[in-house]
Write a protein that binds this DNA or RNA. Structure first.
Lengths: 185, 185
DNA sequence: AAAAACATGTAAGCTGTTACATGATTGG
DNA sequence: CCAATCATGTAACAGCTTACATGTTTTT
């Protein structure tokens, strides 16, 4: 007996699972979310979303219920299962790695955005602390590279790297500030 | 007679073509670049790089020359062809679209980093002006969303969106500053 | 009536990921 | 001589992109 994998197989899978967990949604709802909100940053299209939902359903991480089954235009609304919630919680609680900070900041932010409904404040704060730490650590490395690029006399390369450094610096500060906000309340 | 496509078919193709144009390199050189420099952000692996180089060569956008052909450990060094340079120049000169600003900022930055050796200062400044303009425009939209998210009482969503807004704001300022720097000199 | 939005999907083709395979050269 | 680094690749697999297909309901 072959068991289906117990967690989403792609970033899109986690995104959809997390969104559906926050609010039960149809494929079309999710398509619109990716079209009309800042989620658009996580570019996706119907051709990816509908198959991904099917996969999640087959893995029993979400369940779909057909509204107006009699109607000629049925609407299939998905919601997360307890297995889906478990997978999400594991995802949300995973440690922040250097590798993710370098190559996958976007996914880290999505994780933070969706973890509100999933983990307690302590876990969220741990996430932010790890994130800030890794960012600050990586900043040192980036500044080392900046010297080399600057010395090489490549204005575009230097400017591009400076932009990357600023981005990381701002994000680290944001994480510290968010940590403060989550501390109060 | 089937002509091969006259430009790279993927972002990785453009990245490799641009890097090779700046400095003739072997597959291994490029692998190391993606491993040990801030190019690591544009995550890639040998399994993608070597086939991509082959594709570019088949399209005659780059040519490979085998160093030490007699040796038992040959090293294949690629350099851009004139067709490759033309494709790069077209890429570098393309207008900045809203869609790229929303979904593909990373590629825009890579474009800027590599366009130094490809287009004149006027073209680079036009790029930065379009980028800054689109960013500032998009910022308005993001702030509209922020009100909604804040009103919805979702602290994580609000914080994540605030981080996105800061990122875009900082990038817009960077573009304006870079514009100034490229203006002098 | 026409257009736009609702709503779900399929198929071809290509690319990236991961893991593996192979062997040479250099530094300790 | 052993490990690390140099150097290039292949193969299986799964997923995404793009384009298409289909029909309904609501708005103008």
């Amino acid at each position: 007996m072959v068991k289906p994998a117990d967690r989403p197989s792609t970033p899109l899978g986690y995104a959809l699972l997390g969104l559906v967990h926050r609010q039960p949604s149809s494929g079309y709802d999710l398509c619109r979310l990716f079209e009309t909100t800042p989620m658009a940053h996580y570019s996706s299209s119907p051709g990816a979303i509908y198959p991904a939902l099917r996969r999640l359903e087959k893995q029993e991480l979400i369940t779909g219920e057909t509204e107006k089954a009699d109607s000629l235009r049925p609407r299939r609304v998905y919601r997360s299962t307890s297995a889906g919630e478990a997978a999400l919680r594991e995802w949300a609680s995973a440690r922040v790695t250097r590798d993710e900070v370098v190559r996958d900041l976007d996914m880290l932010m999505l994780r933070f955005a969706l973890m509100g409904a999933l983990v307690d404040r302590a876990a969220a704060r741990r996430f932010l602390e790890e994130l800030a730490g890794e960012l600050e650590d990586y900043l040192g490395e980036l500044e080392g590279h900046l010297e080399k690029v600057a010395a090489a006399g490549d204005p575009h390369g230097r400017l591009a790297l400076e932009s990357g450094i600023e981005q990381h610096r701002v994000l680290a500060r944001w994480a510290r500030r968010a940590l403060g906000e989550l501390g109060e309340a």
